[in-house]
Each structure stands twice: as structure tokens, then as C-alpha cells.
């Protein structure tokens, strides 16, 4: 047994209590990946039908409209093959061959295995199809912050990809144990935690020199905190603190997470089986 799993007894009790409260434990691998990926958080509006397109994401790079990902053939992804889905998720290329803006976190999903992506698509295929088209994204150039110039940067995206993106696979780290690697895969791939918790450069690409150091200018103008293993991040948090946070949203000081993170907890990390959540905690407490 890994030493980090010897959590205080009382936290184990809380884990038991909230597991009993959880209504929707994932039934299979596809649903688990869907939960940890937090697909709902971006692709569903506050009141609207599940996954039929989300509320606009306002970022320094413009306003993005998360599209319909229900299995509707005309307006959703119902017409997609497994290969189309894998290409979209791992390479950020649409079935028509157009590059996606990196507001869609294919830069993280690229770490996912084909088997997991097929399982995830299998789950999405079970969602009620909804016919709903999404508005076009509204881009602007952040380097001229005082001018909101409407732009279509699809062409520039190829340059962006040349500079900042190459398809990758998650490679287990040999000198780390299985639990850490399991947590690393979930955090870096489907969980796409770095997309908010790592700052971005002027082109909206993750600045890996400052991994996990937070983003004062995150989506929706939110200040995303650092989660590094030092005092600036979560160095002072115990494994029990992290477990409570990822189950209930409670911070060590009694405060509760808001908006973005509250949804991630509610729709995702609170539903995970203990072993997956604990693997994520092991990884977060031992970031590379």
C-alpha cells in the first residue's frame, strides 16, 4: 500500500459519506472519462439540453462558443467515425480537415489512448441527440488589447500549431509507480488540468516553463490558483485536504470553490472512484 493512501481515518469516513451521497457513479470507462474530462462544463449551457452547445467562453483571445457534441448527425458529432473523433481529440483537426482553436483542449487530450477515446465516444453516442447549431467564434488579437478587432484566425492556426503543438502520447514514467502514472495520465490527458492551472503565453499556448503556476487571467477573467507543490500552490495541503476538496469543493480554510472549479468537482472529481481520485492526488503531491 502506498504511504499516501494512509489518510486520516476521518477523511476515509467522509469519503464513505460522500460516496453514499453520489448519485451518478460512472458505470463504465467511457462515462468515467466523460466525467473527469468535464465535457458538460463547457458543452452545456446553464439551462439547456446536455451537450448541445455551451455558454460562450470569454477569453483574452476572444469569445468561443463550445459546439454541440450530441450524436445529432447534422449539427452534432453523430456523423463522425471513431477515426474522426480520435483525430479531433488527439490532433485538434475537424473531420473537414480544419484546425480547431486551442480553446478546445486537444493539446491535453492528445495524451489519451485510442482505446480510451473510443470508450469516450461510445459514451457520447448514448447521449440524447439534439439539433442545435453553434454561433461562430469571435476572435480578437490580444497584442493590441485596446482594439477589439474581429478576426478569423483559422489560417494563422496552422502557424500556431507549427510553433506550439505536436501530437503526443502519454508515456508512463519508468521510475514512478503505477499509482502516480495513473494519476499523471488522468491529470494531463482527460482531466486537462494544465489548460487552466498553467499560464499561457501571448499566443494562448501553455507556458510549460511555468507549469502549474496558475493563471491570473484565465477564462471568464477568473484568477486560477497555482497548484505547484510549494507554498505558492498546494504545498501546505495534506492528502486529506486534497481529497476533501476534490470530493466536496472545500478548501482547507473552510471556503468552497466557485464557478469553474465547482463544476469540475460536481460533474467530475466527486464522482470518481476513490482509487482514481487518490491517484490524481498522488500525482499532484508529486508533480514532476
Amino acid at each position: 500500500m502506498h504511504i499516501l493512501f494512509v489518510l486520516p481515518l476521518a477523511v476515509g469516513v467522509i469519503a464513505g459519506a460522500s460516496s453514499a451521497l453520489a448519485q451518478n457513479q460512472p458505470a463504465d470507462r467511457g462515462e468515467l472519462l466523460f466525467d473527469i474530462g468535464g465535457c458538460t462544463n463547457c458543452h452545456t449551457t446553464r439551462e439547456g439540453p446536455a451537450l448541445a452547445g455551451g455558454d460562450p467562453i470569454v477569453s483574452p483571445f476572444g469569445t468561443f462558443y463550445p459546439p454541440n457534441i450530441t450524436p445529432d448527425a447534422a449539427t452534432g458529432i453523430g456523423g463522425w467515425s471513431d477515426a474522426d473523433f480520435i483525430k479531433a481529440m488527439r490532433e485538434g483537426i475537424s473531420p473537414e480537415g480544419d484546425p480547431y482553436y486551442p480553446a478546445f483542449p486537444f493539446t491535453s487530450y492528445t495524451h489519451m489512448s485510442d482505446a480510451d477515446l473510443i470508450a469516450l465516444k461510445g459514451y457520447l453516442d448514448t447521449i440524447e441527440p439534439v439539433e442545435a447549431s453553434s454561433p461562430d467564434h469571435e476572435l480578437k488579437m490580444p497584442v493590441w488589447p485596446y482594439l477589439d478587432i474581429p478576426l478569423d484566425l483559422r489560417v494563422a492556426l496552422w502557424g500556431w500549431r507549427w510553433l506550439f503543438f505536436e501530437p503526443e502520447r502519454f508515456e508512463p514514467v519508468a521510475d514512478r509507480d503505477e499509482v502516480w502514472n495513473r494519476g499523471a495520465y488522468l491529470t494531463l490527458g482527460p482531466g486537462h488540468c494544465a489548460e487552466c492551472h498553467t499560464p499561457r503565453n501571448l499566443f494562448g499556448a501553455l507556458d510549460h516553463a511555468r507549469d502549474w503556476s496558475g493563471n491570473p487571467d484565465g477564462a471568464e477573467g477568473e484568477n486560477v490558483p497555482a497548484i505547484t507543490a510549494d507554498a505558492a500552490g498546494i504545498g501546505d495541503w495534506s492528502e486529506g485536504d486534497l481529497s476533501l476538496f476534490l470530493q466536496l469543493g472545500m478548501l482547507p480554510d473552510g471556503d468552497f470553490a466557485g464557478s469553474g472549479m465547482a463544476k469540475i468537482i460536481n460533474n467530475g472529481t466527486s464522482k470518481l472512484p476513490d482509487e482514481d481520485r487518490n491517484a490524481i492526488i498522488t500525482f499532484l503531491k508529486n508533480l514532476p
Binding site: I14, E222, F256
Partner: peptide, 27 residues
Amino acid sequence: AQASLAAFAAMGKDGCGGCHADYRKKN
């Protein structure tokens, strides 16, 4: 004690967190 813990978890997640999810920015 067990029921109190469960009630606390429900209050935190649905009471505090549920409201913050929709009506509060940050974190």
C-alpha cells in the same frame, strides 16, 4: 456522527459549492 458527516458533506457540496458554481467567480 456518521449522519452528521454526511449532512456536512451535503451542505458543503450542494449548499456552499452549489451556489458558488453558478453565482461566484474564481477558484
